[in-house]
Amino acid sequence: MTYTSIDACGQHHPPAGPDARIASLVPSLSELLFALGLGTQLVARTHYCIHPAAELAAVPSVGGTKKINHRRLAALAPTHVLLNIDENTQELSAQLAAYVPQRIVTHPCAPQDNFALYRLLGRVFDREAEAEALCAGLQQRLERLDARRWPGRRVLYLIWREPWMSVGADTYIARMLERVGWQTWPRPAAVRYPQIEITPQLLAEVDLVLFSSEPYRFTAADLEHFAATTGCAPHRLRLIDGEMTSWYGSRALAGVDYLHDFAAACA
């Protein structure tokens, strides 16, 4: 096992001690804190932090992932704030530096990156045993996923409409889907979340069109409308749980199990 106290920006973080007051500006990481037994030390969250719902109801919200109420957060006196390179801006991180001593920056880009994430927080916040339990659970699930031979497929994974938006190959979502042999399509260079045009040619190139539940909450009605307006056969269209494919942290365990069953049902 490899433990490190160095985050995704190369910053070293000393042990936090039992009095750490943690703010999480990343939904996946808020959920992970509870899985690590750190829920009582979480003093602030975003309004997008929704799991676990009952426990988070008592934690003050300070805004979104890009824009927060700094006065409110400062009043809560956090010693640490959890950030993510994709979900929070550099400008926000720089503003937080004025009053939060430790900014822990994360950047999981694939399911296996969760091992380092668990161990980073486990070491900083003295939860190494809990971190190892999560690692063991994820390892078991990934081995189950990898033990099955999955047929290769091209999938169009939609996250937004008006305009249509998809995911590029260099995303956590795409790397999750790769574990079951699914390649996200189209594959524009250097674009992580591209705007796309739905054309007959594009639909002819893919095996499945996946409609995510987030950030746009697609419904069965959207699939019906899509089939009617594009002529795409309904059996090629699927709703998919976006939390299970895009949330890292402790949600990755349930996410890998979900993806196994989802892909098996599409086989």
Rank of each mutant, 00 (worst) to 15 (best):
M1E: 13
S5E: 13
D7R: 04
G10K: 05
G10H: 00
G10A: 07
H13C: 02
P15E: 01
G17I: 11
R21Y: 04
A23R: 03
S24F: 00
S24P: 06
S28K: 01
L32I: 11
A35P: 10
L38H: 00
T40P: 07
A44C: 03
T46W: 09
H47N: 13
H51G: 13
P52C: 04
E55H: 00
A57R: 12
V62M: 02
T65N: 12
T65L: 09
T65E: 14
R71K: 14
R72P: 07
A77V: 07
A77T: 14
I85A: 13
I85M: 13
I85T: 13
Q95R: 15
L96I: 07
Y99E: 00
V100G: 01
V105Q: 04
D113G: 14
A116M: 01
Y118V: 07
Y118P: 01
L121R: 00
R123E: 14
F125Q: 04
D126Y: 09
A129H: 14
E130L: 05
A131D: 04
A131Q: 01
L134P: 05
L134Q: 07
L134M: 12
A136N: 03
A136Q: 08
L142S: 03
L145Q: 11
D146V: 03
R149Y: 11
R149C: 01
R149K: 15
P151H: 08
G152D: 07
V155A: 07
L156Y: 00
L156T: 02
Y157W: 06
W160M: 10
P163K: 14
W164D: 05
M165W: 12
V167G: 03
Y172S: 09
A174T: 00
R175A: 01
E178Y: 03
E178I: 01
R179H: 07
R179W: 08
V180N: 05
T184W: 08
W185Q: 06
P186S: 08
Y193V: 09
P194D: 02
Q195V: 13
I196E: 12
I198Q: 13
T199D: 05
V206C: 05
V209Q: 03
S212L: 06
Y216T: 15
Y216F: 12
R217M: 12
T219I: 09
T219N: 08
A220G: 14
A221G: 10
D222P: 09
F226Y: 14
F226N: 13
G231K: 10
C232M: 15
C232H: 07
P234Q: 02
P234E: 00
H235A: 09
H235L: 06
R238H: 05
D241H: 14
W247L: 11
G249I: 05
R251N: 15
A252C: 15
D257M: 11
L259T: 05
L259Q: 07
H260K: 03
D261Y: 00
